[in-house]
Design a protein around this nucleic acid. Sequence first.
RNA 1: GACCGGGUAGCUCAGCUGGUAGAGCAACGGACUUUUAAUCCGUAGGCCGCGGGUUCGAGACCCGCCCCGGUCACCA
Length: 494
Amino acid sequence: MSVETRSFVEEARREKLRQISALGLSPFAYGYHRTHTAREALAAFRPDSSPVVRIAGRLVSLRGHGKTTFAHLADASDKIQLYFRADEVGSAGYELVKLLDLGDLVGVRGEVFQTKTGETTVRVREVELLTKALRPPPIGKEDAEGEQHGALRDPEQRYRRRYADLAVHPKVREVFALRARVVAHIRRFLDARGYLEVETPVLQPLYGGAMARPFTTHHHTLDATFYLRIATELYLKRCIVGGMERVYEIGKDFRNEGIDRLHNPEFTMLEFYEAYADYQDVMNLIEEMLAGMVHEFYGTHAIERFGKSFDFSPPWRRVTWTDLLREHAGIELRTADDPTLRRALERRAVADTAAMPRTRLIDESFKTYVEPNLEQPTLVTDYPIEISPLAKPKRGDLTLTERFELFVHGRELANAFSELNDPDDQRRRFEAQHAARAAGDEEAQQLDEDYIRALEYGMPPTGGLGLGIDRLVMILAGEPSIRDVILFPMLRPE
RNA sequence: GACCGGGUAGCUCAGCUGGUAGAGCAACGGACUUUUAAUCCGUAGGCCGCGGGUUCGAGACCCGCCCCGGUCACCA
């Protein structure tokens, strides 16, 4: 908002800013030495003593009563009531109190006591303005039931002004604290098993490791086109070739696709690779990792989310892709021809099937008929080879691959396989992708000669997995939209 | 990209069949030394998303556009 359109509310705050400056006080302090957080101050109360605390935070409520004022101060830990008396903070101090607004950041010193209604409160002896808030926080009033009235609710404003959303909604901050715990847990889990965390390029001359359209950019000095990575896969496997036997990366991938409540163009992916492991080993590992996480966080394997119960107790259901397609769609992959698949898709109102190559028909059939049914943690195994260009053929059935995906709540959370390490086979798979690309599949993978060269040096048998962190957090947090687990989701520029 | 819903005061929202733009909270002034959605009295605050049209008259109706949300499509 420009200066010209500054609202009267903001003008009032700027006027107070001038008055505070006129009192010789700085409206923007350099620091404050706290002795307690709000939570610690609340816990410090004793009926028989009045511990003195210094706390700092944002004013989230303000009730003036003439020569007394009540307020609530919120910091990252909690919120606590403040009680100002003109005769206790001094006339100069109370002048300042009268110029405080909702949203201002203050530091106070005082003793912890309880009011006659029993609320633990800081009886303020000294107050300092730490930062004047020149805009009103979009804060609501909380009634006795904890219900917010008038709080910022417009989703667009919540995402665009996440700082304001976070400032007034502790529950939003909790989601991101959970997200941090998820990532920390993953690191601990993998580190403890001898995995090495690595960082691979975000800017890549070729993109690969997944099916997606990339973001394209340009490096001036090299005068070369680069792509923002769509996956870390091919670089992590180069690390495996180089003898780093267990590696992982947690980082952003970028896919130039639509935005909806399950997709953000940049999102966070965990990928890990382990030499001498196959996809069965990886299944066991991811099961242990996530079941352990859920149990550590919630003390149980079964959690209630979205009005349903999700049970992460191992072992999870393991079922083959073809069995599921037969079970839910009545389709026998081996014998179903393309027209059969098209008819099946059209029955579910899937459009443009005429333009779909067989790989897409296969993929679509599964997505349409099977995926929505996979509520409980399910490991879907043995994907058709046509849609799995980086996975090893399945032992005993070369039409399938040793690949699995983890589904929870009807959504894919992870994708993993026994990694294809035969360079000649890999070249043929890339060439098939290349043909699909020529036939108009914009998401087909590019042929990466250097990756094949790496495989020619010899990649040990390897199991690897990719896990969508955002989607995992959505399930754990019970959030229906990916935007609610990403601090600053992509929006159209203002 | 398609369809549906939405955009009105700082925030949350109402606004009928087209007839002077509203409420609560927040703000400003006043009263109030244990309040807690504080209370009481008073005041101010609007490009009704943008542009065009219909009409004596449009926040409302029509057309176009912008933005957001939801659903679907693509994708993870």
